[in-house]
Structure formats: C-alpha cells, structure tokens
C-alpha cells in the first residue's frame, strides 16, 4: 500500500513526526496510520489531524510515502527507516532520515539541518538546498555517517559530513564552512564553490572541491597535481586538481582535492611540488 500525505494547513509550530516512516506504515490500515501520534508544538495530535491521509493499494512490498506540500516544519521524517521510500514534493524539516539504515528518501524542495544525520545506509536525494550538519552526528557524538549516500543538487550549509566514516555525499551546488570536519573516511564531493576550512581536523577520507575555495587550511600540506579525480564508480571529474594532505594537527592523511583552474590564488603552493 502506498500512502499520500497532504498537509491540512500551513504549519506554524514545529511538528515532530517520527512515525512518517515506511517501516511503521507497513501493514497498517488507513485508520491506524491516521491514528499515529505526532507532536504539534507541545500538543500531541494524531497524524490524521495534521495531514489528509490517502492510501493507494499497490502490489509492491515496501510502501512509498509521498508528502504533497510544504513539510519544512515537519521534523524527523523517516528517522531510522530501513526500507521503502519517502518522496516529499515540497520542503522538508530538520532531521530528515536521521539514523536511516536503508530505503530511499527523495525531496523535491529544500531541507533544513541534520538531514541524514548519523546515517548508516540507504539514499537521500535532495533537489533543492540542504541546511547545516548534513550527515553529521548529534552533539557531542563522533558517530558520523557510517554508510549510505546523500545527493544534494543545491547548496548545503556548514559542517556537511562531519565525522563521516564511510559512504558518499555529493553536492552539486556549493558547500558552507567545515565540509568534512573531523572526517575519518568516505567521500564528499562539492561540485561548485566551497567556503573555507574544508577538511579541518580530518583524519582520513576524501574531499573533492570542483569550484572556488576561499582558502586551504595552513595545516594541510601539498602533495601534488592530479589530472582527474574519481568520485565513485562511474563518476570521474576530468580536470587538473591540487591534492593536499591533512590535517597535520590530527596527524591526518585525508585527501583534499581542489580544482586548479578556479583557484589561481593557490598557485603559490606549486613551488613546493
């Protein structure tokens, strides 16, 4: 059974709706789904009080949940989901797909902070922009993204992929400061520009910046020039890249590829090659 959700109003208060999750919807009747508990501000409500819930019988095993409309106030959609699919035709709120293990989430709008936080598997694809802390762990935790894939077609905020261990984050727009902060493994690709401090305190892993970067941390050392960089199977960027290694402060050996052409201000590093 597939489920369509239509917001019944423009939400003003924060909505916490962990129940919007294919694993939870599975094998539930329409009535049961409508009765699922959500929070609107400090009041507990039923899902059916906030959304018009529509069920479509299908032959597929794993359900597809589609939200039609603006869900930018709706937090924790798809938290911990293991299978199935969520499609959001509009914006989505914070903590989308946090600790997700499998399945797919697609958003045809913008997403606020902590999307894919502490993700362990599955795919999140965002056609708009994503907020801060994309794929990053909860406060105080070092449990970064362990696996899975996040694709953002717009821009992202600060600290994308912080503490990342495995998996891939592809950003086809620009990234804010501290992309790949304290990263330990995996790959972050920023196709366009990147604010400064990319890879700060990284220990291992790969960051690729295809556009302009304000500056490279002084605690990175230049390793060489590369003609191309492989992002993942089937995606290779053919362009000259500087390769930096760091972060020295953490005795790290992370790889930071910076496209040469958009960054003439880094040419002084070439004297070390």
């Amino acid at each position: 059974m597939n489920v369509n959700l239509y917001p019944l109003k423009e939400f003003k208060l924060p909505i916490v709706a962990e129940c919007i999750n294919p694993d939870i919807f599975q094998e539930k009747s329409l009535k049961e789904i409508e009765a699922l508990k959500v929070w609107e501000g400090n009041k507990q409500k039923r899902l059916g009080e906030l959304f018009k819930v529509e069920a479509v019988e299908t032959s597929f095993e794993a359900p597809v949940i589609t939200i039609h409309g603006n869900a930018s106030r709706v937090r924790r959609i798809g938290v911990g989901m293991k299978s199935g699919e969520i499609i959001i035709k509009g914006d989505a709120g914070m903590h989308l797909g946090e600790e997700m293990r499998g399945g797919k989430i697609t958003v045809y709008g913008n997403v606020l902070g902590w999307a894919g936080s502490m993700m362990k598997g599955g795919t999140i694809e965002i056609y708009g922009n994503a907020g801060d802390y994309l794929g990053a762990p909860y406060r105080g935790s070092t449990e970064g993204m362990k696996d899975g894939k996040i694709i953002v077609h717009g821009n992202v905020g600060r600290e994308a992929g912080a503490h990342m261990r495995k998996g891939i984050i592809k950003i086809y727009g620009s990234a804010g400061q501290f992309a790949g902060f304290r990263m330990k493994g995996g790959t972050i690709y920023v196709q366009k520009d990147c604010e400064s401090r990319a890879g700060a305190c990284m220990v291992d892993g790969t960051i690729v910046v295809g556009g302009h970067i304000e500056s490279v941390m002084p605690t990175f050392t230049i390793e060489g020039l590369r003609k191309r960089v492989k992002i993942e199977e089937g995606e290779i960027v053919e362009a000259p890249f500087y390769l930096f290694i760091g972060d020295l402060t953490e005795n790290g050996h992370g790889r930071l590829f910076i496209a040469k052409e958009p960054n003439p201000h880094l040419s002084h590093y070439e004297k070390f090659l």
């Binding site: 700060a200 002084p218 050392t221 972060d247 402060t249």
Partner: peptide
C-alpha cells in the same frame, strides 16, 4: 590550528 601544528613541531607551508 597553526599553533596546534607548531606545538607538534610541524612546519607550515605558508
């Protein structure tokens, strides 16, 4: 961060 590198006796390329 530069101070952190220096107190670990690392050299800076700037």
């Amino acid at each position: 961060q530069a101070f952190r590198a220096l107190i670990r006796d690392q050299e800076l390329e700037v």
